[in-house]
Simulated assay, not measured.
Amino acid sequence: MQIDLNGKRALVSGSTGGIGLAIARGLAGAGAEVVVNGRSDERVQQAIAAIRQDCPQARLTGVSADLGSAAGAQQLFAQVAEVDILVNNLGIFEPKGFFEIPDEDWQRFFEVNVMSAVRLSRHYAPKMAARGWGRVLFLSSESGLQIPTEMVHYGMTKTALLAVSRGLAETLAGSGVTVNAVLPGPTRSEGVGDFFESLAQEKGVPVSQLEQDFIRDNRPSSVIGRLATVEEVANMVVYLASPQASATTGASVRVDGGVIRSIA
């Protein structure tokens, strides 16, 4: 299968690191013009430079805007009027016990993880439908189905994205625009890597051992028995963004290493 996204413009929210950066790199490698987004010019330019190392001919645009706010979204819309592929990747996470999560944290997580995706989809998807082709993707998580007790507020936002994704898919039925959610499992992203690195230093053990212990103790249902790589998640997103995925819509597609114990 040869995925060719030449002539398509893609926007990946929160794409200066981790899974978002890998998705931006994958889309650029498939020929798409990619809008890289982050909160600071420095991070955006670093991400663009990193992508160009692998894809020297990549067509890249950088937009620094905090999409966790309505004002930040408007900033982006002023610079990027239309896209063919929208990847709602922006998200934050934080381990914290349920009884220690204050109102402002619940609101912040919902604003960043859910409302950023709602605002971008509301702006770009109608224009895709008017042109008769488009792809909208939401980065949910296995935590949206198996809510982690150590961060219920995060799991709540990922469940919400599944509802938004399915509802939007049905709203756009017959338009030529597909809408899907992608559910990564435990993934060695930048944020997760930093978390394990600091924890490993605290405990005085190698990061690799800590990762293995985490899978054994916290995700024992994992079939692959390891963390996924950001590239493995990005590969699924690139496929779903392609013309070849035209019959896949309204779906929740898992890249979870088999963590979710379900046959459907």
Rank of each mutant, 00 (worst) to 15 (best):
M115Q: 12
A200I: 11
N113Q: 04
L161P: 00
K158Y: 06
G176H: 08
V182Y: 07
S116N: 14
F214D: 12
V118R: 09
E202T: 14
T149M: 10
V179W: 00
L183F: 04
H153Q: 15
F138S: 02
A169E: 00
A163Y: 12
P184W: 09
N180D: 14
T187N: 04
Y124P: 02
G144C: 14
F214M: 06
V192Y: 13
N113R: 10
T149V: 12
A163N: 10
M156I: 12
G134Y: 09
T187R: 02
T171M: 08
L120W: 08
E202N: 13
L172N: 00
L199I: 01
G185W: 07
A125M: 08
V207F: 13
A173F: 02
V118D: 03
P186K: 06
T187P: 04
S189A: 14
N180T: 09
V182N: 13
V112E: 01
N218W: 08
P186D: 14
Q201W: 00
T178C: 09
K127S: 14
S143R: 07
N180R: 00
T149I: 08
D213V: 03
S198E: 15
V118C: 03
N218V: 09
R135H: 12
L199G: 05
R219S: 09
Y154I: 09
H153R: 09
D213G: 02
S121E: 04
G134L: 09
L137W: 08
V114F: 02
A160V: 01
H153K: 07
A181C: 11
M128S: 10
H123G: 11
R188A: 15
L137G: 11
G176D: 06
V152M: 11
V182L: 15
V179P: 00
V164H: 03
R166T: 03
T178Y: 04
H123W: 10
L162W: 00
P184K: 15
L183N: 07
F138V: 05
S175D: 07
D217Y: 06
M128I: 13
I215G: 01
K203R: 15
